[in-house]
Design a protein around this nucleic acid. Sequence first.
DNA 1: CACATATAAAACCAACTGGTTATAGAACCG
DNA 2: CGGTTCTATAACCAGTTGGTTTTATATGTG
Lengths: 113, 113
Amino acid sequence: MSVDVLDATFAALADPTRRAILARLAEGEATVTELAAPFAMSQPAVSKHLRVLEHAGLISRGRDAQRRPCRLEAARLKNAMDWLADYRGYWEESYQRLDDLLGELDAGQEEAP
Amino acid sequence: MSVDVLDATFAALADPTRRAILARLAEGEATVTELAAPFAMSQPAVSKHLRVLEHAGLISRGRDAQRRPCRLEAARLKNAMDWLADYRGYWEESYQRLDDLLGELDAGQEEAP
DNA sequence: CACATATAAAACCAACTGGTTATAGAACCG
DNA sequence: CGGTTCTATAACCAGTTGGTTTTATATGTG
């Protein structure tokens, strides 16, 4: 996986407005005005966010008269997830260490009551 | 999960230097100079990256004389992964559509050879 | 104590980000 | 055609980012 793709993906996900847009698009296609409605910001601001998402390959856009319907493109999310999955062992290990500690405390109580 | 935590996590992951630092720390604790060695940048630059990672809760730092050993803190990576996992269905759906298509082609061959 | 090593902090800079307002372009409606 | 709707572009601004060099701080060593 190209470094720049992950860069763009994670950078795009680092903004709550953009994550909210993706969440909305998970429910189906939406136009720019539909996407902009929930936010207390101007339409051009939302268009900029959409451009970031499109550049990151997280959305694609069609054409329906004046409207440019956006749709979620989830493949890049999988790339990000795959990167994170390499670290799964490290947070599971934390639980394991906690388990071990609790196990030791338990054993201690049995041995020296 | 607080919005700002995900913001900081994804923003921290959006830089290749920082992802490389995390990858190095996955192999065990390391000092600042050890972490800085592979990179063609100054020590203060690496210290800044470490500050970003620490602020995002992705690393923690101990004290060993003049050294400040860094260790991976993977819990926040799990948070990011959990967010992404909500979209798993959307990229699997793409495979599903491909499967369906291949299935139809197959069925077509059987019905009309 | 003087010096070396490890790290952080400060000051600076260019580039980028996330927002704004105003304007332009494209497609429909009457 | 003229007006309305939807979206994009441009110009601007303040704040952040990622890097630099220089300097300071903290700790171990001879």
